[in-house]
Nucleic acid binder design. Structure first.
Lengths: 129, 129
DNA sequence: TAACTGTTATATTTATTGTATAACAGTTAG
DNA sequence: CTAACTGTTATACAATAAATATAACAGTTA
């Protein structure tokens, strides 16, 4: 796995885990149906507690990124991640708003902001339909 | 003031304060040099503790949005907010990355994402040079 | 049977958040 | 001069979140 945690960050490590797995899916490094490490093995691999990994997995399950089979294991959602609905988009806007407000205050132009977004999109679209 | 707090939100209220003041500056509702309410009056206005307001003000001061004169009061930075440097932009990219990764997973196209950003920029650019 | 799965329960530690009072030092208005 | 106002500091407390530590349970699989 490609997990790289920053224990000094103000971002909780269970959230770092969630984000890095989502990024792995976006990057198509993690494919639909692909298995994820068990909570215990991943925890010991990266040197954290089993419950912290489990918390991350539960979040990812709640949001449809993964499936958890009780006595089998954890798998990237074989049907793909559910498409964004209205509430997802509203949440996205809510998260985006303060970033854009600060960017405007700091004189980052709309063009520069959009270019940054485009380059990030490009980061994830190595091989996509 | 245009402060509207959500006490049910998972976002800390001191951060809600920070964001709403930054948005007020971006919207040019708060102008450079304009005075902000004292920690005590704002706290009592919105029904929270003085220290919570002070925490928000300290963050805004740290980031150059406001100036605090010891026995005078709090003022929107008269020289304007310091422009983004490399570390600001790196932080912006860091904050943007998980939003874009999830958007890709949820099949939000680059075009749709960019349109959302544009419409948010438009929200703040009511009267700008 | 043994080793593995996710899950649940309990407990503890630590950090963050928010509140509550009180006081200090300087400014300003009456 | 006094009173009321600034931000600031200190201390204490409660509630919550984050992370760890053990332990056990119920199925699955080699």
């Amino acid at each position: 796995m490609f997990i790289n945690l920053d224990f000094e960050s103000d971002e909780p490590i269970y959230l770092q885990l969630v984000h890095q797995i989502i990024e792995g899916i976006a990057r198509r490094d993690l494919r639909p149906g692909e298995a994820l490490p068990s909570v215990r093995s991943l925890a010991s691999d990266i040197g954290i507690n089993l419950h912290t990994v489990n918390k991350a997995y539960q979040h990812l399950k709640q949001d449809g990124f993964i499936l958890i089979h009780r006595q089998k294991g954890v798998v990237i959602n074989p049907d793909g991640v559910p498409k964004a609905d209205a509430s997802h988009k509203s949440q996205l806007e809510k998260n985006l708003r303060p970033l854009i407000a600060e960017s405007i205050c700091r004189d980052i132009s709309e063009e520069e902001f959009l270019m940054l977004c485009k380059s990030l999109y490009k980061t994830y679209q190595g091989g996509r339909s």
